[in-house]
Amino acid sequence: MLSTPPAAFSRKIVVESLSHAFDIDGRSVPVLTDVSLEVAQGEFLAIVGPSGCGKSTLLNIVSGLFPPTTGRVTVDGVPVEGINPRIGYMFARDALLPWRTSLANVAFGPELAGEPADRREARARDLLRLTGLAGFEGSYPSQLSQGMRQRVSLARTLARNPDILLMDEPFGALDAQTKLVLEEEFLRIWERDRKTVIFVTHDLFEAIAMADRVAVFSARPGRIKSLVALDLPRPRSVTAGRFGPRFQDLYDRLWDDLRYEVVAAG
């Protein structure tokens, strides 16, 4: 059941025997054990696993927020040491700056990089149009629905033109319909330039509908239990194919692996 990415692709992200433990009240609590993973250039990898198994921790380490206890991560062959704005990171919570308008939120990354105001605003405008928010450039986050805020957050993540996207349950806090719409739109945007994506989700449908491969993590301390390649054709629709036999097969297989771990996690 283990599969490696096609050899034709270059290895974009390499995680080598990574383990991590947090100090909690002076005790060392292992969160990830011996995770090794390769993500190819342009690959869409989904990660599923019971909550608390260290998925967010893995993304935090890949993003360079903090180093792992042991093991290492390389991006384009270069070890990750600290934050790299070429890696975009999006959370389930929008984390928008409430005193900035949509436009200023999206332009924030380029602004930090010292890009001139007219250029970054033009780009922010384009990205807001791309994420379906034309007309809402001047709105503050408090004036937007949750779905719209996640659109702004997505546009902000794209604004520094990262070549890797780390997505931590980006649509997890949305209602079911809004979620479908945003998944559909995200796939459409992703198809344009096929950035390398690691997409954490607790939704198996979402994982199968979007990813090239799915990694199933074990209960805490998390390790990779299985890696399943999805040979579904692209470009895909999030909803079409959801009830087809291929989809059902993959779902059953992943759920078999995952259910055991979810039960184990309590």
Binding site: I87, F91, F108, L112
Partner: peptide, 26 residues
């Protein structure tokens, strides 16, 4: 809000930018 600090750092904010553009307005 710690999320705002983290996301700003991820977007490339340095210490001074964090103070002026995140902590001050908030």
């Amino acid at each position: 809000d710690q999320d705002l600090i983290i996301i700003s750092r991820l977007l490339g904010a340095n210490r001074r930018q964090l103070t002026v553009k995140v902590i001050l307005p908030s």
